[in-house]
């Protein structure tokens, strides 16, 4: 496992043998809590650190493999994290478990009315808004520039609102009545595909995850997403928002780990109908498309885009994000007595 390709610079990784991978040194760290207290001062309170876990089936779970990778970041505000944090490193079986959970959730999620899904997405926006400062701090801690972080959180909340209002408009935008020449009534309606695998872009770490996952689930798909390895903590904070919103467990599942490990597994998994992979590595993109062919997967791969793209109301969201993960079902019926 050692020596695997690394693409992110702010990530430190540890393999099972505990070897620290390169690329982690020199990041600033800090926080309001002095960790080496002066002996004469009153003994400082010892903080309770958060254990970061992946979000699968509405629960926070460790990797079944017991593997982890490490991230560092500068603490901002009331951040209790130690300088180095262990984050689960999703394994093959974690992907399998998450896909199973997403698969089991898909029928009831798709069966909900679009209005209901819209309500749930809107509730998510409310929860995000209420935790916006926390999200912003987390982004900064994860390496996002402070100015960008504020914009990113705002855009993320607005994106949730956008897709909340999209759920019950999709049909009106893409469905058709087909004026066939004959005594038949025909129509074509959009339907969710099933389980969609999402490899979220490295950056922006929060907006990228929302922008890729929400258009997938608004139409009734369920998602298994791999969060940016640059800042998995913000993704997990987002999952806490999910957990306290009205989203049923299993609809959005978020793994943490490495794209070069997770993306090929998703691409090969036959229960994953579509995949939306944002990968900086062109070869990995090709690999995902190639592996997906074994199950005729709807595989969409993308090279990284800049923040402006993601923030843009025309580019970063829209029906064009929803359509690739819809099937068209055409129904014919005779018109007669």
């Amino acid at each position: 496992m050692a020596g695997e390709k690394k693409t992110a610079t702010s990530v430190t990784g540890r393999d099972d043998d505990g070897t620290t991978l390169p690329g982690s040194a020199g990041l600033p760290r800090g926080g309001p809590i002095a960790r080496h207290a002066d002996s004469e001062a009153p003994a400082p309170r010892v903080t309770v650190n958060k254990a970061y876990k992946m979000y699968v089936g509405g629960a926070f779970v460790r990797s079944e493999s017991g593997r982890y990778f490490q991230v560092r970041g500068s603490a901002v505000g009331h951040d209790t994290d130690p300088p180095t944090v262990n984050v689960p490193r999703a394994s093959r079986k974690d992907v399998r478990d998450a896909v199973l959970v997403a698969h089991n959730a898909k029928v009831s999620w798709a069966a909900r009315t679009p209005f209901n899904r819209g309500q749930i997405l809107y509730r998510l926006a409310e929860v995000l808004e209420s935790r916006s400062s926390e999200l912003e701090a987390s982004l900064v801690r994860g390496g996002t520039d402070a100015d960008d972080a504020a914009a990113e959180v705002d855009a993320s909340i607005d994106r949730a609102v956008f897709y909340a209002g999209m759920a019950d408009k999709v049909s009106a935008l893409v469905a058709t009545h087909n004026p066939v020449s004959g005594p038949h009534f025909g129509f074509s309606i959009p339907e969710p595909m099933g389980v969609i695998g999402v490899i979220a872009p490295e950056k922006p770490t929060l907006l990228g995850l929302l922008s890729t996952v929400l258009p997938v689930v608004t139409t009734g798909n369920t998602a298994v997403a791999l969060a940016s390895e640059l800042d998995p903590r913000t993704a997990i904070l987002f999952c806490e928002c999910l957990a306290t919103s009205d989203f049923p467990g299993g609809v959005i599942n978020v793994l943490t780990g490495h794209p070069f490990e997770v993306a090929p597994i998703m691409a090969k998994h036959r229960e994953v109908t579509g995949i939306d992979a944002w990968l900086s590595d062109a070869e990995l993109r090709t690999q995902v498309e190639r592996l997906g062919a074994d199950s005729v997967k709807r595989a969409k791969t993308h090279a990284p885009r800049d923040l402006e793209f993601w923030l843009g109301e025309r580019q970063g969201q829209g029906i064009g994000w929803v359509e690739p993960f819809l099937e068209t079902k055409t129904v014919w019926h005779p018109v007669g007595l």
């Binding site: 058709t176 087909n178 595909m193 099937e327 068209t328 079902k329 055409t330 014919w332 019926h333």
Partner: peptide, 20 residues
């Protein structure tokens, strides 16, 4: 992708055709 109810094998250029 195409469901024929009380009919079968009907095709029309205005009617989308393709699979899941």
């Amino acid at each position: 992708g195409v469901i024929w109810a009380n009919t079968y094998n009907k095709f029309d250029p205005s009617s989308p055709f393709g699979g899941y």
